[in-house]
Computed example of a mutant assay.
Amino acid sequence: MDEKQRNSRAVRRAVALAATAVVAVTTGCTAQASGAGAGPAVTAGGVTKPAAPAFEAADAPSAEPSPDATPTKAPPKEPAAAPAPSRTEVPEPRPETEPPAPRTLMASGSGGDQVRELQARLRQIAHFNRTPTGHYGPVTAAAVSSFQDKRGLPRTGTTDTVTWDRLLGMTREPTRAELRPPAADPVAKPDPRCMKGRVLCISKTSRTLSWMVEGRVVSVMDVRFGSQYTPTREGTFEVYWKSRHHVSTLYDSPMPYALFFSGGQAVHYSSDFAARGYSGASHGCVNVRDEAKIASLFAQVRDGDKVVVHW
């Protein structure tokens, strides 16, 4: 190949290379950058750089807002509500349960075996110095009051559940002899006039009535007499009238189981004696405070039986 042909081929090759470069610039058919959607490469200073991805122009937010756009303001936030102060629940005070009030068991006017036991127990600790009678009168009330005072209890003279429980805790169960001592125990020596026949032997010294048959004591009971202004007569008499449901015509007061022996004076049951004991007095009659005993006596005594009232 001559020189001319070689130059001509070189020129054609150069033209072909230039055309290829132009086509490459206009069509952008270069290797894509890594990642889909990359833009055409840009050649600058002989160095080919990949163009920015095509999606950036459309998707990237503009740096400045459009002049026609109305700026939107976020609604002001309401201040958060302050947390409610913690409350410590204070339970309402519960009313204290008061102990039940003491219940009354025995009081003045009461009678029966429980009263007899009360008297026997009080006698064990030297608060009652008489023979148990089974009748709750002023003497028993005073003994109960004395016991309550010594134990720091209210001095009511009434035996309530508290007083009774305290007494039970300090004493033992009374024996039969303590509850019902022999009849001769409280009785004074009988008057000689009482040793024969059927006699109501009444002693003002021991304040007792002994029902005696041929010198033997059948029963004994506590009695009280008239005051100094209406004294009970002394001497030997006879029962001349029995009246089971008698009522005094002078004083309009009941005289149950009346055994009349001298005028208007009689041996009879007295509810006042049972309630008040020796703090009271009769209008001359011989009062008996044990209703059961006088009822039994009334059934046994006959008209004409002797009555002896002595000191």
Rank of each mutant, 00 (worst) to 15 (best):
G112K: 03
E117N: 04
A120T: 06
G157L: 00
H127Q: 14
R172W: 13
L167W: 06
L122Q: 02
V144S: 08
N129I: 13
L167N: 06
G137K: 06
T171P: 01
V162H: 09
A120D: 09
E117F: 07
H135D: 11
F128D: 05
V139E: 15
S146I: 06
D113H: 10
A120I: 05
T140C: 07
G111E: 14
G137A: 09
Q124V: 05
F147G: 02
E117A: 08
H127S: 14
R155K: 08
A126V: 15
D160Q: 04
R123L: 12
T161W: 00
S145M: 08
W164K: 07
T163P: 00
W164S: 12
L168Q: 07
L122F: 04
G134C: 00
R130G: 08
V162A: 14
R130P: 07
L118D: 09
R123M: 13
E117I: 12
A126R: 15
N129A: 15
T163I: 03
A142C: 08
D165V: 08
D160G: 07
D149N: 13
R116F: 00
Q114N: 09
V162E: 09
Q119V: 05
H135G: 14
P138F: 10
N129G: 15
K150S: 10
H135P: 04
V162Q: 11
Q119G: 03
A142T: 09
F147Y: 04
T171V: 04
L118Y: 04
Q148A: 06
H127E: 12
M170F: 11
L153E: 00
L153V: 11
Q148D: 05
V162C: 08
T158M: 06
A120C: 10
F128L: 04
P138M: 12
Q148T: 04
D165A: 13
R123P: 02
G112T: 02
G134V: 00
P132G: 02
T163W: 01
D149V: 14
L118G: 09
G111S: 10
T140N: 10
G134S: 00
S145G: 07
V144K: 12
S146D: 11
F128S: 09
Y136L: 06
F147E: 01
Q119F: 06
R116T: 01
G137N: 13
T131F: 00
R155I: 01
R155T: 08
T156G: 03
S146A: 12
R166W: 11
Q119W: 05
A126E: 15
N129E: 15
